[in-house]
Amino acid sequence: MDLTSPPAPPADPLGAALHHLRMDGAWYFRSELTEPWRLDLPPMGDCLWFHVVTAGRYWLSVPGQAPRQVSPGELVLVPHGQGHELWSEPGLPAPPVIQDIPHEYVSERYAILRHGGGGKSTSLVCGAVRFDHPTGYGLMARLPRLMAVADPALDATLRLLAAEARELRPGGETVITRLADVLVIQAIRSWLGTDPAARAGWLGALRDPQVGRAVALVHREPARAWTVASLAAAVAMSRSAFAARFTELVGEPVMQYVTRWRMHVAVGRLRSGEVPVAVVARELGYLSEAAFSRAFKRIAGVSPGSVRRAGPLAGLLG
């Protein structure tokens, strides 16, 4: 690959990372609940669960976390797909939401759920979404186990979502799911701007004027035959200064990170089960399937074939 004309680094590396947070919705549902009620949400593998309360209040319990009450204006994310419970009050039996509660399916992936004892009402819009880009699932691995976001920047989107949820008009399912996706991205953006954990590793490095642009280049063109020298030249730094600053900010040497990111991309390709390992190897610039497989096992600890057989492996690359 020609290294004489390296691509121009993005002016906003953090914005470029957010641009790649494309979601593949696994399932969305609108819940109309009346007290007393309790729901058991199942584990969803590599999905991110979200819950938006559009009317009323509820309690949420995630294993290992203290229960918390959620009010209108708050968006709750369960980023690692853990099973969890929602309830109007403690001590109630929890029927599995998918198996035991009737749903009115508006489309294959959108349902309306009605449940409860006829008392005070609570309305929720919930869903489980996957990211379909390595930036997305690389970022998800760094998110906390539970996120509750109450950011004024989300208010306008929350109001739109609540208005659509009150009465499902023609096309309402599409509007609700798109608004839900926007809310998830807004919540992650809020977390990036406020949580100290977002300032570590490659996420934190994106804020550096030069190393951030180099990281964004690797993310944009993982198959390019990058070297420490070519990345340093692309961001107008000397090789030695760039290598030292990259390791300091990202937490690992340049080429180790390049390889690790290629394996993130590989997981995304392999998890579908549709692309042969040899094709993935060629797409990422490896001259042979054997060389790719060795690199993958060194980084991931398992063979590429085991990823295909086991399906998505949450947190595989940390």
Rank of each mutant, 00 (worst) to 15 (best):
L3M: 10
P9C: 10
P10K: 04
D12L: 04
G25C: 13
W27F: 13
W27L: 13
F29I: 02
E32A: 14
T34E: 12
E35M: 12
P36I: 15
W37K: 02
L39Q: 08
W49A: 12
W59Q: 10
W59I: 09
S61Q: 13
V62I: 10
A66S: 12
R68F: 15
G73D: 13
L75H: 01
L75K: 01
V76E: 03
V78W: 02
P79S: 08
P79F: 10
H84K: 06
A94Q: 09
I98L: 14
E104C: 06
E108A: 12
I112P: 00
L113S: 02
G117T: 13
G117K: 06
G118V: 03
G118C: 13
T122H: 05
T122C: 15
R130W: 08
F131P: 00
D132H: 08
D132N: 11
G136W: 00
Y137P: 00
Y137T: 12
Y137V: 06
L139M: 13
R145G: 12
R145I: 15
R145L: 15
M147K: 04
M147A: 12
V149W: 01
V149K: 02
A150D: 07
A150Y: 08
P152R: 10
L154S: 08
D155A: 15
D155E: 11
A156W: 08
L158I: 11
R159S: 09
L160W: 07
L160C: 08
L161R: 07
A163W: 12
A165Y: 10
P170D: 10
E173P: 00
T174E: 11
V175D: 01
A180W: 00
V182L: 14
R189S: 14
W191G: 00
W191A: 03
T194A: 14
T194F: 09
D195F: 06
P196C: 07
A197I: 03
R199E: 11
G201Y: 00
G212N: 00
V215M: 00
L217W: 01
V218W: 08
E221G: 03
P222C: 08
P222W: 01
A225R: 14
A225G: 13
T227L: 12
S230A: 14
A232E: 01
R239A: 04
F242Y: 01
R245V: 06
F246W: 09
L249M: 01
L249V: 15
V250L: 05
E252Q: 10
M255V: 09
Q256G: 13
V258D: 01
V258C: 09
R260M: 07
W261P: 06
R271L: 13
G273S: 04
V275Y: 05
P276V: 04
V279C: 05
V280W: 02
A281T: 07
R282L: 11
E283Y: 07
E283P: 07
G285A: 09
G285K: 02
L287E: 13
E289P: 07
S293Y: 07
A295V: 12
A295R: 08
K297P: 05
R298F: 14
R298S: 14
V302H: 11
S303Q: 12
G305F: 06
G305T: 05
A314D: 07
L317H: 03
